[in-house]
Write a protein that binds this DNA or RNA. Structure first.
Lengths: 151, 151
DNA sequence: TGTGAATAGGAATTCAAG
DNA sequence: CTTGAATTCCTATTCACA
């Protein structure tokens, strides 16, 4: 099925680029040799419950569903609190040590956060490694994690 | 100035009714003897950063800005944790007792949550009273508070 | 500035069709 | 059940004006 694959591209595009209108999706997918029309994108957006958010700067951009965003952050906080042992950063990477068994879950949750500044996140049994796109993002990411633990 | 007033009506309408498109705003404002056109609503929406959210049921409805929603929930959790003493319900009302001085802040935060099921919330120095629209909503509201405390 | 009227522009749906 | 083309519907902007 082509739809599932395309929709995951949509998620990726939202993370990595600033999508201002549906035709942006069409254009960028075309570059990946996925040819679809605006009609299809509109349906995908409805199905995925993406929203067009007016931005502070006076423009618009598509984003992930508000409720799911909140939910996954809540879950992440719970897991973090439950399993957290320690966190360290080096360059643009952050390592989070957790109690055995919790790595994969936390890694998945971090990924689902759809944080634009993250390059990748992987987790084994007791370790989660997040690679940020920039060093600045690394600090932001650590702050975010710290805040979740503290809030 | 007329705009500020109108925009607060918009907030109210989002809370109390299911707004599917901008013309719904126009129509409902007209009933309140506020005559505006769709163009103005579009500008308000941009300014207030409201979003049109695809719903699970296959429709659409306008809602509050996702980020502000998250932020105010976080603040609420912090304040709750800080100040919470006890909570009790009777009929469709919920009373939250807090440490002296925290009532007004918590009441404001609860109001800002824009919970559709709330009729009103007021807070004095150490007490917050939330009146829900229905008895069912009362339970939901208590659950929500409990979860914020527990999460 | 803030607004309405008109219009352009973007998004959702209908209507085949695979 | 998924899609594209065409169309309708909805939203944003332009332009004139208070």
């Amino acid at each position: 099925m082509r739809k599932v694959e395309r929709q995951s591209h949509l998620r990726q595009l939202i993370n990595n680029t600033n999508i201002e209108r549906q035709d942006d999706f069409v254009r960028l997918l075309a570059q990946k040799h996925i040819e679809v029309t605006q009609a299809t994108i509109s349906r995908d957006i409805k199905e995925m419950q993406l929203v067009k958010v007016p931005t502070a700067g006076g423009g618009y951009h598509y984003s992930f569903p508000p409720k799911k965003q909140m939910d996954s952050e809540k879950k992440m906080r719970r897991t973090l609190r439950d399993a957290f042992i320690s966190m360290n950063a080096q360059d643009n990477m952050v390592v989070i040590n957790v109690h055995p068994g919790n790595g994969p879950a936390l890694a998945t949750l971090i990924s689902q956060t759809n944080d634009e500044s993250l390059f990748a996140t992987i987790g084994d049994d007791a370790t989660v490694l997040s690679i940020c796109k920039t060093k600045a993002a690394t600090h932001e990411f650590m702050n975010k994690m710290t805040n979740l633990l503290a809030d």
